[in-house]
Computed example of a mutant assay.
Amino acid sequence: MSTLRLGDTAPDFEQDSSKGRIKFHEYLGDSWGVLFSHPADFTPVCTTELGYTSKLAQEFAKRNVKVLALSVDEAASHQKWIGDINETQNTTVDFPILADADRKVSTLYDMIHPNASATATVRSVFVIDPAKKVRLTITYPASTGRNFDEILRVIDSLQLTDQYSVATPVNWKDGEDVIILPSIQDPEVIKSKFPKGHTVVKPYLRTTPQPNK
């Protein structure tokens, strides 16, 4: 399958996991989703990633996000690995890890890059909205651990910009000023949409306090 692009419908699938059979779209329901792949079980970088993601459980929950990891090993191997993660990272992994031994999901989501490794999945991340549309894709090399604070930041931005006529600037974090979309030019519309006021830096660059704070 060709690479998934932003705005594409995330392919549905049914696959075994550390928590039993998962039907992906059914699992997500009306939630946002983060699907992220790992090269293999019992690997050091993945162990730290899954541990940290587990510690962010409340952060994902308050954003209405369900997390789903993937590794190409069997579910029984995942269970043993989760024991190691819980022990070494001082946490309790409570989200499913897909057991993608047949590479079905890895192939659907183009997670195996043959020039990097013929068998292991790269560190792919997909953020999927409640309409099952792909809203973010990030691919890291196997040697580099991901920044899950950044993934939360992007979800904050997506959820904010879906609701209001704004974009978020460089390095934006929740609570900071945002940018009014250039498509909004009518002063009365600006006044009604952004009652906290706004600053004109340039005609195309106008900032306003975050609308939902």
Rank of each mutant, 00 (worst) to 15 (best):
M1T: 09
S2P: 05
S2Q: 11
L6Q: 03
L6T: 05
T9A: 06
D12H: 11
D12V: 08
E14I: 08
K19H: 09
K23D: 10
Y27E: 04
G29E: 01
S31I: 04
S31K: 08
L35Y: 02
P39G: 07
F42H: 04
F42K: 03
T43K: 01
T43W: 00
V45W: 05
T47L: 05
G51R: 01
G51D: 07
K55L: 14
K55C: 10
E59C: 08
E59A: 10
F60Y: 15
A61I: 04
A61E: 14
K66D: 04
E74Y: 14
A75P: 07
S77H: 07
Q79M: 14
K80T: 12
G83E: 15
I85P: 07
N90S: 13
T91K: 08
D100W: 15
A101F: 15
K104S: 08
S106G: 15
M111E: 04
I112C: 07
H113W: 13
N115F: 15
V122P: 10
V122E: 14
V122C: 13
F126C: 06
P130S: 06
A131M: 06
A131C: 01
K132W: 13
Y140M: 02
P141S: 03
G145C: 12
N147F: 10
F148E: 05
L158H: 07
L158K: 02
L158S: 03
Q159F: 15
Q159K: 13
L160H: 09
T161C: 15
S165L: 10
V166G: 14
V170T: 11
V170N: 15
W172R: 01
G175V: 10
E176A: 09
I179R: 05
Q185G: 00
D186E: 06
K191E: 06
K193F: 13
K193W: 05
H198I: 03
H198C: 10
V200P: 00
V201E: 11
P203E: 13
Q210R: 06
K213N: 11
K213R: 11
